[in-house]
């Protein structure tokens, strides 16, 4: 049963000054599942992501990744331990080529962090892996364009690709479909489904159709507290959730 838990949040609280954003959050993410976090604006979803990925440290509580404490560690260490995140606001290297954006992630995974004496063009494994990733996110024909020149949905796809580039075991996606048309949303969701096969996915998402069709389990965060966790059916049937959050949209 223990091996089943990839990510374990225990009693997580976070305050900024006197403002309490999160309070007593307990959350378990199982290996291989696709887990959504939903909740109204300002519920603390992004803060939760920032705590897990190392952007901030929690005020109290512990976060275990495969049984190892990661709360308070810097982002680069957490990333190396196998957890990678995407950003709600596209966070790419605008002036570098699409290929380079991906290759930087692949390089990191190969431990080429202070490599001053090798030619990047001669790194066969790295380059091949980057090309393969480029194909998986279907941006081959944009390979050498500066990432800043891509369309919005292409940039979102690149954002996901960059998150995958370090070959993480756990993937955190922060509103991957924000600001997209229905068509684009559909495209990106298919992409996510495809590229996260066999990995653990934790996703913050506003689009309920996406959440209910994509994810195995759902957690509901309201005013900094975890209201419920369960399968889509359980969440749909949960009265507290309906009252607090879903009521307006689903009823």
């Amino acid at each position: 049963m223990r091996e089943d838990r990839v990510l374990d949040l225990r009693g997580i609280a976070k305050s900024f000054g006197s403002a309490r954003i999160l309070e007593g959050v307990e959350l378990t993410v199982r290996r291989g599942e696709r887990h959504a976090i939903i909740g109204p604006n300002g519920a603390g979803k992004s803060t939760l992501f920032n705590l897990i990925s190392g952007q901030f440290s929690p005020t109290s509580g512990s976060i275990l990744l495969n049984g190892r404490e990661i709360a308070g560690r810097p982002p680069h260490q957490i990333n190396r331990m196998g957890l990678s995140r995407s950003f709600q606001i596209t966070n790419i290297y605008h002036r570098l080529s699409v290929f380079e954006n991906l290759r930087l992630g692949v390089m990191a995974r190969h431990g080429l962090r202070f490599s001053l004496f090798r030619r990047v063009a001669a790194l066969r494994a790295v380059n091949e892996e980057s090309e393969a990733l480029l194909q998986r996110i279907r941006l081959e024909d944009r390979r050498d364009r500066p990432a800043g020149d891509l369309t919005y949905s292409e940039q979102r796809a690149l954002e996901i690709g960059m998150t995958l580039a370090t070959a993480p075991e756990v993937i955190l996606l922060d509103e991957p479909t924000a600001g997209m048309s229905q068509e684009e949303t559909h495209y990106v969701i298919e992409l996510i489904r495809e590229v996260t096969k066999g990995k653990t996915l934790l996703v913050v998402e506003h689009d309920m159709n996406v959440v209910f069709s994509l994810c195995d389990r759902i957690s509901v965060l309201v005013y900094g507290e975890l209201l419920a966790t369960g399968t889509p059916e359980e969440i749909r049937a949960n009265r507290a959730v309906q009252e607090a959050y879903l009521g307006e949209e689903v009823a």
Binding site: S53, G54, P74, P75, H76, N79, R80, S84, R85, F87, N91, I92, Y93, H94, R95, L96, E100, R103, L104, G105, M107, A108, R109, L112, R113, F114, S115, L116, F117, R118, R119, V120, L123, V126, M162, A165, T166
Partner: peptide, 21 residues
């Protein structure tokens, strides 16, 4: 070099560099 590429990435987006390990 790989480090040279990383330098450019740093200029473009330091935050992402950190979240790439």
């Amino acid at each position: 070099t790989p480090f040279g590429r990383l330098t450019l990435a740093l200029r473009d987006n330091e935050e992402r560099v950190r979240f790439m390990g």
